[in-house]
Simulated assay, not measured.
Amino acid sequence: MTKARLAAFAIMLAGTLASGWAARGWYEDSHRLTAERTAQQAIDAAMARESTIAAGVESRLAELQASERVIDRGIIREIEKPLYRNVCLGDDAIRLLNDAAAGRAPDSAEPAAALPDRAAKPD
Score class of each variant (00 low, 15 high):
residue 48 A to T: 10
residue 53 I to W: 11
residue 59 S to G: 06
residue 67 S to N: 05
residue 37 R to M: 07
residue 81 K to Q: 13
residue 43 I to P: 01
residue 42 A to R: 04
residue 83 L to H: 12
residue 54 A to N: 09
residue 31 H to Y: 12
residue 21 W to M: 08
residue 17 L to D: 00
residue 55 A to P: 00
residue 23 A to F: 14
residue 18 A to W: 04
residue 69 R to V: 06
residue 64 L to S: 05
residue 38 T to M: 04
residue 16 T to H: 07
residue 58 E to Q: 14
residue 16 T to G: 11
residue 51 S to G: 04
residue 62 A to I: 04
residue 78 E to D: 11
residue 73 R to Y: 01
residue 34 T to R: 15
residue 76 I to A: 12
residue 38 T to C: 02
residue 55 A to Q: 09
residue 83 L to S: 12
residue 68 E to P: 01
residue 66 A to S: 02
residue 78 E to T: 13
residue 38 T to K: 10
residue 51 S to Q: 13
residue 15 G to M: 11
residue 36 E to A: 08
residue 18 A to R: 02
residue 37 R to Q: 11
residue 40 Q to G: 03
residue 46 A to H: 04
residue 21 W to G: 13
residue 26 W to V: 15
residue 34 T to Y: 11
residue 17 L to G: 03
residue 46 A to K: 11
residue 75 I to F: 01
residue 22 A to W: 12
residue 66 A to W: 00
residue 50 E to C: 06
residue 78 E to G: 12
residue 16 T to F: 11
residue 51 S to E: 15
residue 46 A to Q: 03
residue 20 G to F: 05
residue 82 P to T: 10
residue 40 Q to L: 07
residue 56 G to H: 09
residue 62 A to W: 00
residue 61 L to R: 08
residue 76 I to T: 09
residue 61 L to T: 09
residue 71 I to N: 02
residue 25 G to Q: 15
residue 21 W to S: 14
residue 78 E to H: 13
residue 83 L to D: 08
